[in-house]
Computed example of a mutant assay.
Amino acid sequence: MRIMSPGACVLILGMSLMLPSGMVQGQTINHKLEPYLKSGELPAVAAAVVERGTITEFGAVGTRKLGADIPVTIYDKFHLGSDTKAMTATIAGMMIEEGKLKWDSTLGDVFPELKDSMGKDVEKVTLEQLLSHTSGMRADDANFMELLKNSFDVDGDLNELRYWIVKESVKLPLVAKSGDAWAYNNRGYTIAGAMIEKVSGKPWDELIVERIFEPFQLTTAGLGCQSSLGKIDAPLGHVKQKDGSIKSYMAGPNADNHPVLGPAGIAHLSILDLATWAGWNAGNGMRAPCNIVSPQMVEKIHSPVFTIKSDKPHRPGTPPDGQYAHGWGWVSVDWAPYPLLYHGGSNGKNLAQVWIDKKKDIAIVIMTNISNPKADATLREIAKELYEDATAGY
């Protein structure tokens, strides 16, 4: 692993977002967020703005459960969904800098014991293609849903279940030539996580805690449903039913995705901890913690691989048209002068968005405990207001 010089880290340590427990900098923006609860039909929403490594604005309004008077706070854990993918890509970057993987490491390289069972050209699929959704492998189709269902009957830890997913998935023929087409693919991220597990000798679930949560001091971060069984100790996920009513989900088997999908998106954390992670990315990894990956690796992770063009509306939590990198995308919006680094995340009941202007070193993070197109559009409206306010002096 390449490590920045100690002097560089000390020079910028004062700008680190990792604050002692209970100490929060910046000013509240609850008054900005309140109107969006009604207009967006959101049970709760939290947001924060990070400028050049400092949280300048933050807020959390609404309730943990619609219809109940349980106010959210800035320390409440919201579900991150597919924004977890950027963390998985960063762990992959660590494996690359440690010499355990390469961007062009193939499934055949990492799983030679499965070569004989692999479909045509599957052994040539690379780590980078899996992380950029350009592998050509079958995506989140009926087969993958069946595998997730059947994996409950497989004995072993989550890493062993992921290996079983790999074994079953590599038998399938590619649906497109690797590198030639883009398809959002949670199967691919699950397989990339299995590659990381194979070369590191540790489960992905242990690695994300050891390599991301702890170094960044993301004290609220965890995996799976953000609330505890039998408790409303975090914002519950919500779904708008066909009849227009909104249903909340207590912790349980239907409150989150299958834990085997960890590398694709089952993390949760507070808005302040998400701001810490986003601010570090906005600064290209030049702020503490300094021993994660090199700034060059952060730049590579952020670098576009494929241009997305679709004639269908994107589902909340999936990338819109633009360019896709590795767990990140580049999106053009009418309220920014150039494309912004972006990713959205959702497990169907929660929604998170991360917007980053790397030129100005500004990050905006927004999370809510409901997911649907209206909520997605509302979070974009919040991002626009916060971005325009943050850049008004430029």
Rank of each mutant, 00 (worst) to 15 (best):
I366H: 11
F213L: 00
G224K: 15
G62A: 05
I55T: 09
E123D: 07
G237Q: 09
M286T: 13
G119C: 13
I74D: 06
K231V: 04
L131P: 02
M195H: 05
G279D: 14
Y394A: 05
V354I: 15
G283I: 00
G252L: 05
N281K: 13
C9Q: 14
N372Y: 11
P173H: 04
H268L: 11
D153I: 02
G40S: 05
E51K: 15
D157P: 03
D243L: 07
D76P: 03
I382M: 07
V170A: 13
S346V: 03
L223S: 12
T106R: 12
L114W: 05
G283W: 15
T56M: 09
T90N: 04
K149Q: 09
I356E: 01
A48N: 11
H302I: 02
V24G: 01
V239S: 04
K312P: 04
D321G: 06
A181H: 05
N281D: 08
M137H: 10
D83R: 14
I191W: 15
L131I: 07
G62V: 03
I362D: 00
L161Y: 04
M297I: 08
A267Y: 15
Q323I: 06
A194V: 00
K384I: 03
D155F: 08
T90I: 14
E41P: 02
V45S: 02
K102Q: 10
T276Q: 06
V209G: 06
F306N: 04
A234R: 12
I364E: 08
S132F: 12
